[in-house]
Design a protein around this nucleic acid. Structure first.
Lengths: 143, 143
DNA sequence: GTAGGGATACTCGGATAATGGGTGTCCGAGTTGACAAGG
DNA sequence: CCTTGTCAACTCGGACACCCATTATCCGAGTATCCCTAC
């Protein structure tokens, strides 16, 4: 039970789109270079983000990916759901005596508590409390 | 990213110990029969619960497993941690530009929110709001 | 100068391996209790 | 009646297969840009 690497890559990738100037299009290769990841694998992750409607892909020589919608709308949960899927973390296939599974309810409650956190937190929020120096170092890397 | 079947088995097994009379010792085989699981695999799960200090194992001919401590102390979180481990759900091994990983903090926050739920909720609580009929059907299965 | 066509460079995305953890099984070692035989 | 030895039941732990999702790679298809040629 761990979040996949793909989720980590996706979140960091989205971090770029949130920092980058609006409408900026960027290809897979520079992104992969920044993260130190294989470009082909990152491409798969990005297609998931495309299918989720978070980013947009434009083919062609100077193509790449662009943020779709407002920066402020990119929550952690949207990105995570795009990669991990929206299925419940806990599912019980044991046929309990007569009553349904007693466990499932509270597990679902706990999961919802986490999701609420992840939904309210937007990626943009991470930038707000960042001092100028670090912010500069950050944006410089994304050039 | 899903909870493993082992966690499900463990939770249902602990459900038994909470319902059973205090001090009752039970072997793997009846437990496995009730859940419809392979006894050998369930044994592996039970050893994890033993190492976590949740149940006690007594070898020998009329041996088996016994709840260790009070019923009221068995929280969801203890059982889950015993099986899944206590490692964080999200870990970032990407060396971010200069600042540490910005993502990790909020992921940890969200995880803690879920864990708080799971810690406060005890297995005994599930029995409280169960009507007599269902409760009887339940305890009868655990004979 | 302008329009059109083709080559090129770059992208996306599906198909295809390798790796790792969860799942499940098998078997031998160790331990306890019961039973029976012998003193 | 007591002691002792044997046997059976049960747990514990390691070693071993299997399956499936994650991770990673390769290659084909498609598209926009650019340039070059023809009008």
């Amino acid at each position: 039970m761990k979040y996949s690497k793909a989720t980590n890559y996706a979140l960091h990738t989205m971090l770029y789109f949130v920092i980058a100037p609006v409408g900026k299009t960027i290809g897979v290769q520079p992104l992969a270079e920044m993260l130190g990841v294989s470009p082909t694998y990152l491409s798969k992750i990005l297609t998931k983000l495309v299918k989720a409607g978070i980013v947009e892909s434009t083919p062609g020589v100077s193509g790449g990916y662009t943020l779709l919608g407002q920066k402020e709308d990119v929550s952690f949960l949207r990105v995570i759901h795009a990669i991990e899927g929206t299925a419940s973390l806990f599912s019980c296939d044991l046929e309990h005596v007569s009553t349904g599974c007693l466990i499932q309810g509270t597990m679902a409650d706990a999961e919802r508590a986490m999701e609420r956190h992840l939904q309210e937190k937007k990626l943009v929020d991470l930038m707000k409390h960042l001092d100028q120096e670090k912010l500069a170092a950050f944006t410089n890397a994304f050039r």
